[in-house]
Nucleic acid binder design. Structure first.
Lengths: 165, 165
DNA sequence: GGCGTTTACTTGAAGCAACAACTAAAAGTT
DNA sequence: AACTTTTAGTTGTTGCTTCAAGTAAACGCC
């Protein structure tokens, strides 16, 4: 094996910090949502994505692309959310294969109730500590990284023509 | 509940991109290490941290702080790595409570063998897509975020006086 | 219009992580 | 010196994720 290009001190520093953020940020969001809404971050994200879809309804494959989940994982999670009465599964009238996850009133209420607390947490841990310029830089940088990590932009929902959030 | 401060378009964009990165980056690293070294990213990280410690040996509490793991999680993982013969557990001579995880020759060899591929992946997905200025900006930004996320700097190993990596 | 392929899920088993309860050693208290 | 508290780690259970295998509808095609 040929000698690898090791990291410079600056690169190493940047990398370690980024990794620290990717380790700590999810658990921080997870903790807030679990505490205040009784949802995992993934469950919240699933509900939020559906809630922004027209008719508060979404096919699982589409949802899987947006949430970066395998269909298997999504199927299990949708099952749990269905048991909790936050959404319903129904077959698509157009395509017998696709099943649509549709928010119930309770599901919509859950999203409405939990969103403000979540947004507040995001402000506290990400946006507030940064200057406006840094927020713009962060956006640029992550955009660059996503060109490699997510070439099809499935997570940002660009291909389906709808904004995500 | 009082009306929350919603995100502006720019803030929302930055946030969505950051979240996309924190979702995709771990699975990317995970995949490379699983494929090429048969290790989870967490297992690799544990081995790497121990390997940089003097005597290739580390107390579990110290290790837990560096890897952002609960003692419980670490105990389970150390158990598995011990079964694989990559490290050994032994009681500390100074303090009967602390148990030291020590890398075996096989464990050291594993780190040496897997590090270059991991570093290469880090270059590919993080460092190469960015300019030197952006790397510096990223470092600054993450440094700011860590002030909130990790006030004690346990993850970067600043309190123990040793660099991490 | 039958037949293989692709797409869209579902299901069950196995592994890893989070949580809670526990043991044991050291340190502090009186 | 006994007693409580704190620190360090272990263990078992529960739950979520991943992985492998399976089902069924739609599509391609000759």
């Amino acid at each position: 094996m040929t000698e690898p290009r090791w990291l410079t001190t600056d690169e190493r520093e940047a990398w370690l910090r980024l990794m620290a953020v990717t380790m700590l940020l999810p658990s921080r969001l997870e903790a807030q949502l679990k505490r205040d809404a009784g949802l995992t971050h993934f469950e919240y994200y699933v509900l939020a994505m559906i809630s922004e879809s027209p008719g508060k309804s979404m096919a699982l494959t589409q949802l899987a692309a947006r949430t970066n989940a395998s269909l298997s994982r999504l199927s299990h999670v949708i099952g749990r959310l269905e048991v909790q009465g936050l959404l319903t599964r129904c077959a698509s009238p157009r395509d017998g294969r696709t099943s649509l996850a549709t928010l119930t009133d309770a599901g919509w209420a859950k999203v409405v109730a939990s969103a403000p607390g979540h947004v507040e947490e995001v402000r506290t841990v990400v946006l507030d500590p940064l200057s406006a310029r840094q927020v713009a830089q962060l956006s640029d940088i992550c955009g660059r990284l996503l060109a490699t990590l997510d070439p099809d932009h499935g997570l940002l929902g660009l291909d389906s023509g709808r904004p995500a959030g």
